[in-house]
Design a protein around this nucleic acid. Sequence first.
DNA 1: TCCTACCATCGAAAAATTCGATAGCAAACA
DNA 2: TGTTTGCTATCGAATTTTTCGATGGTAGGA
Lengths: 296, 296
Amino acid sequence: MELRNLITFIHVAELGSFTKAAEQLGYSQSTVSFQIKQLEDELNCLLFDRINHTITLTERGHKLISYAHQIRALIDDYKEGLGGEQDLKGHIHIVSPDSVCEEMINSNYIDFHQKYPYISIQFSTGDSTVMLDMLDHNEADVIITLDQHLYNKDYVIAKEELLPMHFVASADSRFAGKKNLSIEDIVNEPFVLTEYGQGYRRVFDKELAKKSLEIVPVLEIGRTDIITSMVAGSNMISYLPDFVTKPLIESGQLCYLDVKDLNIEIWKQLIYHKNKWISKSLKAFIDYVKEKEFSS
Amino acid sequence: MELRNLITFIHVAELGSFTKAAEQLGYSQSTVSFQIKQLEDELNCLLFDRINHTITLTERGHKLISYAHQIRALIDDYKEGLGGEQDLKGHIHIVSPDSVCEEMINSNYIDFHQKYPYISIQFSTGDSTVMLDMLDHNEADVIITLDQHLYNKDYVIAKEELLPMHFVASADSRFAGKKNLSIEDIVNEPFVLTEYGQGYRRVFDKELAKKSLEIVPVLEIGRTDIITSMVAGSNMISYLPDFVTKPLIESGQLCYLDVKDLNIEIWKQLIYHKNKWISKSLKAFIDYVKEKEFSS
DNA sequence: TCCTACCATCGAAAAATTCGATAGCAAACA
DNA sequence: TGTTTGCTATCGAATTTTTCGATGGTAGGA
């Protein structure tokens, strides 16, 4: 049974005429005859009595009408739903480094939820490798990386920005206020860094390696809030994105170290897979993140 | 949107694979690809994400699944309903002369209703001309005629029988018991007959005309129960089918007149239009009438 | 009686579906 | 590391289905 035939059937039944239905549908009359016959053959019963060139629904025809209407209604319903607001239901999985995740939840998520109450969001954290893998397996809808500048024809970069990075120490560190520090000056200090998997950590190590240097941190931990509070209360040094350290800088607990000779570019990138179907919900979310999470 | 594609879509979604769906449905894999693409093109959205040769339902795909299931369920439901008992719902319009109608209602209808409680029946009365016209306009499902033997390639005679006819008078009529009456003996007596439209009345008049005779009834009335009771209580004569007069003959209120020289054949025929779709209900009814209303 | 309106049917034309073959790609395997 | 396997996309050809126009028969109205 094909929908085309059911639609024709509805028209014929409503107009009580094959000919009129054909006109209305833009078919030839013989086509309508054929389509109805097709239905009748498949259902193995007559849908219309044809007596003296007048057609009347049979009992089964009558019953089919009601089913056909329901079917058509379902399809219309679905198609209408496609454009409508209720398309803003759904589930979105976003994966980002812990720091970004935390910031998002703290600053923006409530707003978003109020604006789109029917979109459910799953936040996960992961390092760049895992995140890209998740994109490849369609396990994440979008990811946010803090890493070197990524580019790959399989991915769409929805938005990106260069991320200021700083060495930070507690405000009363012996390096506080010193100008023109070199990386060599601090390379043997106790460091607390994010785990190696984290994008910017890897870039950091690699850049040091270029200078034949290596930093072995005394502590590695993903949670940047813990790192900053540790740095603030000890003589340890860390290397972190500005948005992480800013609050404690402003409150005077941390200070930047003026190290100029390490040239690292860390990008914050909002990425999804090029083959990903962007639902309305997802689009809303991406737009939201683009606007709120990225400064530019 | 065609149903074929929706069905394929359901299979693909359930199996999570174009290839497996193709096997299950007996299509080639390319056909399945094509069908899904067709759906997607029509709906102007992706139903599946295809990332690294693995497919996952998109949000819209997910929603479509639920609609598709509903649609399939409706169709299955209709098709199942076709064979089942619930097909024994319906409405039947039977038209017959008043006498037959009355007999049916009195003797058989209750039985039928108990056997098929969901079939609603409309009894109408009409004379032969009207009844045949109703068949031609699909206004009656079946008719029962009391008339000369009817035959026409457009009609199906479901059953027929020759109907004994008698002249009747009250038991104390001066003709009672007389043997070998001639039609001429009674032609000028007061007659009460059914209306002219009634089949056997017309046959009767025509047969008389062949003998250059005419009977002008003092009363014409369709209701045969009234005719018989009038005849029983007066000196009037009538000409009626045996099944109408039998009860009063048996109770001794009426008697047959022994008129032999009027050769009339009246048939009781159960007729429907050859193009009429015979629903299960209608078949049940026809079978019932064949068995109960016809002696043979 | 002619004319119009209606549906069924037929063969031809057009459109669609389907298939098989092929390619590209990733994952599993050796 | 290279090979095999399993998956989907795509292409052109073959096939099937759909559609059309023409024709025929019939009923009803003018």
